[in-house]
């Protein structure tokens, strides 16, 4: 597993496209922090915060899904997987190794560009609040974590890279872009009293939504969601909030990787 982790990390950092991410994130954050100039160090939930969160939700999940799913389907197509199958490597070790390598590489490049943008922002005299920045940073890291896992899972299901790309885009579109529209359409069919519990269920099922709401609540802005979510807001803001997030992350990786392992087992013996 350690070797898998190292090899994944090393192949990632040696790709030229890897450094495109450095430029991309650096550019995006420098521009976003520039917006904060008018806000003079506001650390709460403002329009700039909303914009940054939305742009992160547009970009990060899509890229992470594609990177995650490609890293597996690539090996399937190139025959590396068949080669690996001849080695005594267990499937869980393979998956976790891959995941560890990917997240090390992605988190590193993201951290680097985020920190550079922070420095640029500070040097150009924009007042940035530290807690605000760290909140956004943590949110991004969690998004990377969640969608890399989902990407790896797609990789185990999809047969080719092309299919992996299509599935990634479709899932991204569903979870991020069309999510409210789809929910409003579906929940229009159920009786009114069920809408409230189903919305909460949907919030847990969609990790992007869960993270977004968790972040906004931690920013002391949960009241904006109205009376239906007062309980959720208090739960997340209480001491249990962070352990819930932690538990959610563990449960999430457990469920998706169990499924992924199942699918990979089947393919191994095909």
């Amino acid at each position: 597993m350690r070797n898998l982790w190292l090899s994944e990390w090393k192949t990632m950092t040696r790709q030229r496209s890897y450094f495109l991410f450095l430029i991309l994130w650096g550019l995006v954050f420098s521009l976003l922090f520039l917006l904060e100039r008018n806000n003079a160090g506001l650390s709460s939930f403002t329009n700039v915060t909303g914009t940054i969160v939305n742009i992160l939700l547009y970009l990060l999940p899509l890229f992470m899904l594609i990177i995650g799913s490609f890293s597996i389907t690539n090996e399937m197509e190139s025959g590396q997987w068949q080669l690996l199958c001849t080695y005594p490597v267990s499937i869980p070790a393979y998956l976790f190794g891959k995941f560890a390598g990917l997240i090390t590489a992605q988190a590193a490049v993201f951290t680097l560009s985020f920190a550079i943008s922070m420095a640029i922002g500070m040097l150009s005299g924009i007042q940035l609040s530290l807690s605000w920045l760290l909140g956004i940073y943590l949110f991004s890291l969690l998004l990377i974590y969640v969608f890399l896992i989902l990407g790896l899972f797609i990789g185990t299901v999809a047969k080719t890279r092309w299919k992996a790309l299509m599935t990634s885009v479709a899932i991204w579109f569903f979870l991020i872009m069309i999510w409210p529209t789809a929910l409003i359409a579906i929940l229009g069919l159920v009786p009114y009293p069920l809408i409230d519990p189903l919305m909460k269920l949907a919030m847990v099922l969609n990790p992007a939504e869960f993270l977004r709401i968790f972040l906004i609540i931690q920013w002391d802005s949960g009241a904006v969601f109205g009376g239906s979510y007062d309980g959720v807001v208090h739960l997340f803001q209480s001491g249990a909030g962070w352990s819930i997030l932690f538990g959610y992350m563990i449960a999430y990786v457990f469920v998706l990787f169990s499924l992924a392992i199942l699918f990979l087992r089947r393919r191994r013996f095909l």
Partner: peptide, 24 residues
């Protein structure tokens, strides 16, 4: 299942208690 549950729970109208903190 959702529809069945929904179907069963119909027609029983009861007032909901007031939550002083969130109801307006």
């Amino acid at each position: 299942a959702i529809f069945i549950i929904a179907g069963c729970s119909k027609k029983e109208v009861n007032p909901v208690a007031i939550n002083e903190k969130t109801d307006k």
